[in-house]
Write a protein that binds this DNA or RNA. Structure first.
Length: 220
DNA sequence: ATATCGATTATCT
DNA sequence: GATAATCGATATG
């Protein structure tokens, strides 16, 4: 698989970026880049995220209150909240708001940019065509596996600092179209428009054609 | 000490 | 579209 042409330099985001309402952070994270330093470095553009609004959001883990598990969510903004789900998968969030006020953004899908072969090895899949690329990072569990993100290794790490080895940056890319829809895989508070995706990205998770509730026009 | 369930994925039909 | 797999956090006794 060919590696894409070299990117513009990637600069880390400031902590103030995350010290806001999760919906704003979620929207603005589209087009930013998740980086895992190493040999080679891994980099992938954020194309799908979901906002979780904290203690008053029944779908958020923070609704359980401040426990050992949710501690990072109630801490300062810009830190990784990693949880383990369904006995198999890790998922990555970044904390938002401020110390004492929970809120986070779940990373749901990425477009691979650098270190694609390494991601494929971590995912234990063989890339046979460009059409296989979404299998690397389309879905929260998949992207965590591609980046070797685990709770023991990464929970609580500072995503604004390249020194942590896992961080979020920007390269000047401007998101063009943004698709807003309801969050996936939850039962509580399921009907709020808190899922954000880059329109027309082939790397977004979930149904290919976003479930169209179009009514058939009369006369067809 | 034990039971429940989940911010998912892969693999079927 | 449906479902099995799998385990840690949490609630309850």
């Amino acid at each position: 698989m060919p590696e894409p042409a070299s990117l513009r330099p990637i600069h880390p985001l400031a902590r103030t970026f995350f010290a806001r309402n999760p919906r704003l952070v979620a929207r603005d994270l589209l087009g930013k880049i998740l980086v895992r330093d190493g040999k080679p470095r891994l980099a992938a553009r954020i194309v799908e995220v979901e906002a979780y609004l904290g203690e008053n959001d029944p779908a958020a883990h923070a609704a359980a209150g401040h426990t050992a598990r949710t501690s990072v969510l109630f801490g300062p903004p810009g830190y990784a909240y990693v949880y383990f789900i369904y006995g198999n998968h890790h998922c990555l969030n970044v904390s938002c708001e401020r110390e004492g006020k929970a809120g986070s953004v779940l990373f749901r899908a990425l477009e691979p940019l650098e270190g694609i072969e390494k991601m494929a090895r971590s995912r234990a899949i063989t890339l046979e065509s460009p059409g296989d690329l979404p299998k690397l990072t389309a879905g929260p569990g998949r992207l965590a596996q591609a980046f070797n993100i685990t709770r023991s290794r990464d929970n609580g790490c500072d995503l604004t600092s390249p020194n942590s080895g896992l961080w979020i940056g920007e390269d000047g890319f401007r998101a063009k179209g943004i698709q807003i829809s309801t969050r996936i895989g939850i039962t509580k508070a399921a009907d709020h428009p808190l899922r954000f995706a880059l329109k027309d990205s082939a790397f977004v998770s979930g149904p290919k054609r976003p479930r169209q509730r179009l009514k058939t026009p009369l006369g067809n």
